[in-house]
Design a protein around this nucleic acid. Structure first.
Lengths: 351, 351
DNA sequence: ATGAAAGCGCTAACAT
DNA sequence: ATGTTAGCGCTTTCAT
């Protein structure tokens, strides 16, 4: 294939406007030291010729790349894509991230990176070298991967850590997992429940612990026990089934269960059905994530929404601010999701 | 923010290996005229230093950008993201496209472009100027937008037109809409249905016509009538409801309906329920697209799968082939989806 | 306030 | 088979 060169370059604009390249560059980048009339003249040429700067050239000459890289865990993302269960985490990331980037003249690039392999660092380093992004958005479990965090910190690339309470490096953002779990628990307590079970996610994820904490502290605040009411899952349907069985087969089973994601909630619903328990009459159920499938469950699930789009959008804003050298909050930015009440929660039996 | 320059460049590698830049370049690009031992030595330095070429610099010097741009209709995509109905078209595009790109050392960039505005051309031109992609993947309705097709053709950028029978320009790929509709029809005829209704999608999309054609020709082949059995929708739930009513309120209602997407199928299911019709006992239903929600419908819907991931993957292969100057098929590439039988189809009442 | 020169990292074209 | 040169489009010096 033949060389494909830029059709309209800064040179054409400069020639058309009868000014130097530098002046055009100043106009493009909104720099000072250009007289308004000059600026106008140059802008007119830009519009007339339909000129758009080449990101490659901008990047080459050492300025911004206007690219923000968002990375997800490869394994889990591909598993979701294959399963086709309607998980829309990626969609919501793009929704929040791409649109916010566009507002600032940036572009979001979505990539997959393996967290687990020993060559995470090499993989990420390669992507960064190739793309030269102005910022990086990390999602769990990358957000707390010390190799990744260390690399980004060393390279001085602004980066957001979604679902992380952070540390020294990077910009931490959380979706208020602890608060959300507390709200879910409070909702159930308000309905009259006293034995509220909790199915946690994989302990590899910090957010699993935060959710447990929110539930525990709310239970404690209401003077309710938690012994025998916690079951560990790993976010998979199968693990949810097993956890629900453990909870419901006990001597004093809960009248309500909070499960740490939608798959495990669906599994719990299934186990309840098996055991002849009607939801919400015999068992109330609150889910986490609020992915599309919750509308389609029977009954539709009351769920804590994960504000993925809003959080990623905020991450973009913070990265761009950091990039501009603005001061950033030292504490994690919290974007809270709300509890969406649907048909899976009701007062406990006999209430 | 300070200049962030490439940490390891081709120069470092050249110095380390004690060769010229050009030799390193040849090794990177797998070009001939490098002695094996030389190649090995250079590769060793590359590995040692962890060198990765800068895409920006590669692009600047007139070679490939290793970027393939995939564009979707902005309005429809954002509507899907907002609705959170589990539509996973974007996910499947990324699934097929990103992974296939990675195999070839390319990268897929996903973008949204407004088809309807008068500045489509300006918008796309800007994206192309900024990114300099080596190829573009168009999805409906962009695939048949003459402005877009013309622009890409003029710029000599290889591009794929998904869901298009094509024309002179670009690489056309279809998901065998006509064949799929025929298969769905045949399935119902095989079950004993004789009055099979069809709810079409928006006529703005060519594929709507192809699906109608597939249904009509199969009906004709079986000697069955189609009069009064076609209702037009626009892919929305509301339009599906209206269409289903028109079909079911007639004097001789169909015993089976094929709807051109999942939303309209769900709407049909709803209308059937309203009218006291049990699916599949009183009415059989076949859907198109097979997005995640079909599993969760009651009953789960028999549906024609849209092989989005496979089609996009194929598009990537064809673009890269074109880019390398290989010969391409003149006829549209067909990637067929299969009919997934679930619980919404059965023999007609009284059979 | 504007312009000229140098260089970013890489590859095509042209030596050798 | 390998090296040298020039230049991609832009922004950074550094003049003026």
């Amino acid at each position: 294939m033949g060389r494909r060169r830029q059709s309209v370059t800064i040179k054409h604009v400069a020639a058309d406007a009868g000014v130097s390249l530098q002046t055009v560059s100043r106009v493009i980048n909104n720099e000072p030291n250009v007289r308004p009339e000059m600026k106008e003249r140059v802008q007119a040429s830009i519009d007339k010729l339909g000129y758009v700067p080449s990101i490659a050239a901008q990047r080459m000459s050492g300025s911004r790349s206007y690219l923000i890289l968002a990375i997800n865990d490869r394994e889990r993302t591909i598993a979701d894509w294959k399963a086709r269960q309607g998980t829309d985490w990626v969609d919501q990331m793009l929704f929040g991230g791409m649109l916010k980037c566009a507002e600032y003249g940036y572009r979001m690039i979505f990539e997959l990176v393996d967290t687990h392999t020993d060559h995470v660092e090499r993989e990420l380093r390669a992507t960064i070298a190739a793309l030269q992004p102005d910022g990086v958005i990390l999602t769990p479990p990358h957000s707390d991967n010390p190799l990744i965090v260390g690399l980004l910190h060393a390279q001085k690339i602004p980066f957001a850590r979604i679902g992380s309470h952070g540390g020294e490096a990077g910009i931490a953002l959380t979706m208020d997992d602890e608060g959300a779990a507390a709200r879910a628990t409070r909702h159930l307590i308000g309905l009259g429940h006293r034995r509220i079970g909790f199915i946690s996610g994989s302990v590899e994820y910090d957010l699993s612990h935060w959710r447990i904490d929110g539930w525990k502290s709310e239970m404690a605040a209401a003077g309710l026990p938690v012994e025998g009411l916690l079951a560990e899952g790993d976010f998979s349907f199968a693990s949810g089934e097993a956890a629900a069985r453990r909870l419901l087969e006990g001597a004093a089973p809960p009248s309500a269960i909070i499960a740490s994601n939608d798959q495990m909630s669906l599994a719990t619903l299934e186990v309840a059905r098996e055991r002849g328990l009607d939801v919400p009459r015999d068992l109330s159920l609150v889910s986490f994530d609020n992915t599309p499938i919750v509308h389609f469950a029977q009954p539709p699930l009351t769920a804590v929404d994960q504000p993925v789009a809003a959080t990623v959008a905020r991450a973009v804003e913070l990265i761009i601010a950091a990039q501009r050298g603005e001061k950033l909050p030292k504490v994690p930015t919290v974007v809270s999701g709300s509890l969406i009440e649907r048909g899976s929660t009701a007062p406990p039996p006999g209430d």
